[in-house]
């Protein structure tokens, strides 16, 4: 069980989601759009939330799960405060992104898709963010770091570790 509905702002969040769902002109098509919005609001899509959405849209929960698990953009696990995405697209790969990724796993002590014990960082690989001119590329949340070398990894992490939780 996740604690998705035990957050103090749960009702507020659900209201936002409900308003979005009600505003959809075509409920049949809306599932992916709703999931995008739900992930924006709640951060991730655990099964309780999937069930909630299924009931709200009046579709089987299995369909919701099918879609959530199909697309890599959706996550069913709670993410850390900051998400570090290392690009593993071809352009970055030939420029040595594997080494950069390895440096992140070593420094953070976690594997692909995992979150650090303190909940600060989630590490994942992504398939091309379209900034091939800057390869190898690392994205921390929405900020893009270009021409990253394995030696730069510690500095990047330090930059965010200090920020703490807000």
């Amino acid at each position: 069980m996740s604690d998705i509905f035990s957050h103090e702002k749960t009702q507020e969040r659900l209201d936002t989601l409900n308003a979005f769902i009600d505003a959809q002109a075509n409920k049949n098509d809306a599932l992916i759009a709703v999931l995008h919005r739900a992930q924006e609001i709640f951060g991730y899509l655990p099964s309780e939330l999937q069930l909630y959405i299924a009931r709200k849209l009046d579709i089987p929960a299995s369909k919701v799960y099918g879609v959530v698990s199909f697309y890599t953009f959706f996550t069913q696990k709670k993410r850390g405060l900051h998400t570090i995405s290392v690009c593993m697209g071809t352009a970055c790969f030939v420029k040595g992104s594997e080494k950069v990724f390895h440096a992140f796993t070593e420094t953070l002590g976690i594997k692909n898709g995992e979150t650090t014990a303190d909940g600060k960082f989630t590490l994942r690989d992504v398939r091309c963010i379209g900034a091939c001119g800057l390869a190898p590329v690392v994205m921390v949340d929405d900020k893009v770091f270009g021409h990253v070398k394995d030696a730069d990894v510690e500095a990047i992490i330090a930059q965010y570790a200090e920020k703490g939780s807000e």
């Binding site: 098509d29 995008h36 099918g66 879609v67 697309y71 890599t72 953009f73 398939r127």
Partner: peptide
Amino acid sequence: IKYGAGAFVCGEETALIHSVEGSRG
């Protein structure tokens, strides 16, 4: 505007259409 959600196969037109319809691509 409809959003994709990270599936390479959705470049295939029939898969893309299913995704636009809100289903698995």
